Amino acid sequence: MLIGDNYVFVELQKTGSTHIKQQLQALLGGHSEGKHNKPSDEQLGADRVIIGSVRDPWSWYLSLWSYGCQRRGSLYTRLVDAQNWQRSLPLLQARQRERGDLALEQLTPQRAHDVWYADTGSAQGFREWLRAVCLPEMRSTVQSGFEASGLGRWGCGLMSYRYLKLFTHGVTSLASEAESAEDLRQWTRRHFRPAHMIRLHALAEDLIATVQALGRPLSAEQCEALRQARPTNRSSRPHPFGHYYDAQALDEVARREWLLIERHGFERPSLG
């Protein structure tokens, strides 16, 4: 989180937030407090405007997986720890008995360590990981609080949970306040706190618009410098996007992250 005189930048993981923070700090000043945390009411007490960051969910999941391949991140830690699977394993076993659609030998913490996160060039590793992370039965293993949020009622995925947890007052009341997908849309509109969102695919233009909306005029040279600036802290992978995704994986993300896709106009990527 970056706090300035008249703004707070709240950063969603894997959305180019390091680069955004650097640019905002250079143009508007401010100081860092934590990283992927929410501002308190006290920090917002000076009528600061909230800025958030987001990216398309297909590249978000790929970036999150790549980060885990470096043996980093809370999701990696949870997925390779057998203790964190204790609530999910009975649910996975029950689903297999009822539906027979899971390969349980591919759903273990050892598999996460040995296959899912073993090689940033492995399409198989990514696709196995993605399916596991998107399984409803895995919510309690994937993220603390995810299952209790009630988002599973509308088939929402991990990115939607983190997005709503960070950019609203919280999701603890969501299950009791929304009964349908339309209720969820309206709840999100009512409780969403950022006034400006910086999208990774339009980072420079969104930054320019946000900074100027906060009362900081930018020269043509400054705008061009923002357009030419190279993002920092990118996840490294040896293959392009289409190597990792197939049509089934694209569909899975589209089903789980429909709310974000609708809200921000993200388009399904092409594999061609």
Rank of each mutant, 00 (worst) to 15 (best):
Leu200Gln: 15
Leu174Pro: 06
Thr188Ala: 03
Ala118Ile: 00
Glu182Ile: 11
Gly45Val: 06
Leu79Val: 02
Gly125Leu: 11
Arg87Phe: 07
Arg234His: 08
Leu226Lys: 10
Tyr163Ile: 04
Ser59Trp: 11
Arg162Glu: 11
Ser88Ala: 09
Ile208Asn: 07
Leu28Ile: 09
Arg185Cys: 10
Leu27Asn: 06
Ile50Ser: 03
Arg97Trp: 09
Pro90Tyr: 06
Tyr161Gln: 09
Gln13Tyr: 15
His19Ile: 01
Gln110Arg: 12
Tyr7Lys: 02
Ala132Arg: 13
His201Pro: 09
His36Glu: 04
Ala26Arg: 13
His196Pro: 03
Arg95Lys: 05
Asp246Gly: 08
Arg255Ser: 11
Arg127Val: 04
Ser235Tyr: 08
His201Gln: 12
Leu260Ala: 08
Ala46Thr: 06
Ser270Glu: 00
Leu259Glu: 03
Asp206Gln: 06
Glu262His: 10
His239Lys: 05
Gly125Gln: 03
Ile198Thr: 04
Ile208Glu: 01
Leu89Thr: 12
Cys223Ser: 02
Leu27Ser: 08
Gln96Asn: 12
Leu250Glu: 08
Ser180Arg: 11
Asn6Phe: 13
Cys69Asn: 05
Trp60Ser: 01
Ser219Glu: 02
Leu203Asn: 12
Leu89Pro: 01
Leu62Ser: 04
His264Pro: 09
Ile51Asn: 00
Phe146Lys: 13
Arg71Ala: 15
Ser270Met: 06
Ser66Pro: 09
Met197Ala: 10
